[in-house]
Amino acid sequence: MNMLKKTLLLLGILITLPALAISLDEAKDQGLIGEANSGYIAIVETSSPELVKLVKQVNTKRKSAYAQIAKRNNIDIAQVAARAAEKLEQRLSPGEFYQDNLGRWVQK
């Protein structure tokens, strides 16, 4: 009986773990991450393994997209990322963070 309870508890924890993962929008809304002036996202202040994983996933996808655009237009990926940073900053919602040209975090 005790083993059954432990098994059910473990199963319950495993089922709820994916629900605990934070989305990009939630992290932005909570001020945990922001748009860096590099065209990628970055952690604003307090880090956690979950945030590090999210940032890495998003930035990997962005880098891939930037590389495709750069190749298609025969320009440097840094140019694509810089232009993306400008556009992403313009689309931020009030309260979200972005990094200014001096690297300071600013709340929109």
Rank of each mutant, 00 (worst) to 15 (best):
A27F: 12
Q79R: 02
E89Y: 02
K28G: 05
L102V: 04
E35S: 10
Q30M: 14
A82I: 03
E96M: 10
A67E: 13
L51V: 07
A19E: 05
A36D: 12
N101Y: 02
V55K: 09
L17K: 04
A78E: 12
L8S: 06
A27V: 13
R91G: 08
E26L: 04
E50N: 09
L51K: 07
G95H: 08
L17N: 07
L24A: 10
I33H: 08
L20A: 14
K6S: 12
A65R: 09
S48Q: 06
Q79Y: 01
V80I: 09
S23E: 10
R104V: 03
A19D: 03
A78N: 11
G103W: 04
D29T: 13
F97L: 01
L11G: 15
K63E: 06
A36Y: 03
R91Y: 03
V58P: 00
Q99D: 06
I33Y: 07
E86F: 05
V52C: 00
A85Y: 05
T60C: 00
D100P: 05
I69E: 04
R104S: 12
Y40G: 01
K108L: 08
A27R: 08
K56H: 13
V58A: 04
S47Y: 01
K56M: 06
E89S: 10
T46W: 04
L8R: 08
F97Q: 01
K56A: 15
L92E: 11
